[in-house]
Simulated scan of single mutants.
Amino acid sequence: MIRKLQLEELGRVDVDTFKNQPKHPVVLVLDNLRSAHNVGAAFRTGDAFAVEALYLCGITPQPPHKEIHKAALGATESVEWHYFEQTAEAIKLLKEQGYRMVGVEQTDSPTYLQDFRPAAEEKYAFVFGNEVYGLSEEVLPLLDMALEIPQFGTKHSLNVSVTLGIVCWHYWQHAFASKTP
Rank of each mutant, 00 (worst) to 15 (best):
R3I: 15
K4M: 14
Q6H: 11
Q6N: 12
Q6L: 15
L7N: 12
E9P: 07
G11V: 08
R12M: 15
V15F: 09
V15S: 09
Q21T: 13
P22H: 09
K23H: 11
H24I: 07
P25V: 10
N32L: 05
N32V: 09
A36C: 15
H37P: 05
H37F: 14
N38G: 10
V39A: 12
A41D: 11
A42M: 03
G46E: 06
G46M: 03
D47P: 09
Y55C: 03
Y55P: 01
C57Q: 09
I59K: 11
E67P: 06
K70D: 09
A71H: 00
A72C: 04
S78R: 09
E80L: 10
Q86D: 10
A88H: 08
E89R: 15
A90P: 03
I91P: 01
L93A: 14
G103M: 09
V104D: 00
E105I: 03
Q106G: 11
S109R: 11
S109V: 11
Q114I: 12
F116T: 00
E121W: 13
Y124N: 05
F128N: 04
F128W: 05
N130F: 05
V132H: 10
G134N: 07
L135W: 06
S136G: 10
S136P: 05
P141S: 02
L142H: 04
D144T: 03
A146L: 02
L147A: 01
I149W: 02
Q151W: 02
F152G: 08
S161C: 01
L164G: 05
G165H: 04
H170N: 04
Y171I: 00
W172P: 01
W172R: 08
Q173C: 00
H174E: 00
A175C: 00
F176A: 00
A177Y: 01
